[in-house]
C-alpha cells in the first residue's frame, strides 16, 4: 500500500508535478530504512539532496563596518593585478637598461671612414670579394654538371 503511494509520488516527482510537501514526504521515505527494492536505485539521489542541504561555508564573512561616508571597499584581486603590472613594468625597464649597457663595443654604431671615397673603395673591395666567391661557386657547380653529363646520356 505504502509502496504504491510512493510509486505514484515518484512518478509525479519525475514529471515535476509534486508539491514541496510531497517532495519532503519522498525525502523522509528515502531517509528511512524501509525503502522497497524497486526504489533503491533512487535512494542515493534523495540522500544527496538531504546532505547537500547542510553544506556550510567554512570561511567567516567580513561584516561591513558602518563607516561614515560609505567608503567603498576595493577588491583585493584588482589591487594585486595592478601591483603585478607595475612590477612587470619596472622589471622590464631594468632589464632593458642593463642589456643596453652590457652591449659589446663592436655592435655599437660609430663612424669608421673619413671620406666617402674611402668608404666607396672599401665597399667595392667587399663586393668584388663576394663576387669572386660566387663565380668560384658557379664554376664548381658547372664542373659538377659536366660530370653528370654521361649519366644524362645513359638515361636518354
Amino acid at each position: 500500500m505504502e509502496d504504491h503511494k510512493i510509486k505514484g509520488l515518484l512518478d509525479k516527482y519525475w514529471e515535476g508535478e509534486t508539491t514541496l510537501e510531497e517532495e519532503r514526504e519522498l525525502k523522509s521515505y528515502f531517509a528511512s530504512s524501509q525503502v522497497a527494492d524497486e526504489f533503491l536505485p533512487f535512494s542515493p539521489l534523495f540522500a544527496f539532496y538531504e546532505e547537500a542541504q547542510h553544506v556550510e561555508m567554512q570561511r567567516e564573512i567580513k561584516a561591513p563596518t558602518p563607516v561614515s561616508g560609505g567608503g567603498k571597499t576595493v577588491n583585493l584581486r584588482w589591487l594585486i593585478n595592478i601591483a603585478a603590472s607595475i612590477a612587470i613594468f619596472i622589471a622590464m625597464f631594468y632589464i632593458n637598461k642593463n642589456s643596453k649597457s652590457n652591449m659589446p663595443e663592436q655592435y655599437a654604431y660609430h663612424d669608421t671612414y673619413q671620406s666617402p671615397e674611402e668608404a666607396y673603395d672599401e665597399v667595392k673591395k667587399v663586393l668584388l670579394f663576394v663576387s669572386a666567391k660566387m663565380n668560384k661557386g658557379v664554376n664548381t657547380a658547372a664542373k659538377g654538371l659536366e660530370k653528370m653529363e654521361p649519366l644524362h646520356e645513359i638515361l636518354n
Binding site: 542541504q53 556550510e56 561555508m57 570561511r59 564573512i61 567580513k62 561591513p64 571597499t73 577588491n75
Partner: peptide
C-alpha cells in the same frame, strides 16, 4: 555558498564569490 559551489565547483572560489556578493 551552496549555490555558487554548484556552479563553480571550487570551494575557495565559491567563498570568494559569497564575500564579493556581500560587499
Amino acid at each position: 555558498y551552496r549555490f555558487a559551489l554548484r556552479i563553480v565547483k571550487d570551494s575557495p572560489e565559491a567563498e570568494d564569490i559569497v564575500q564579493e556578493i556581500m560587499i
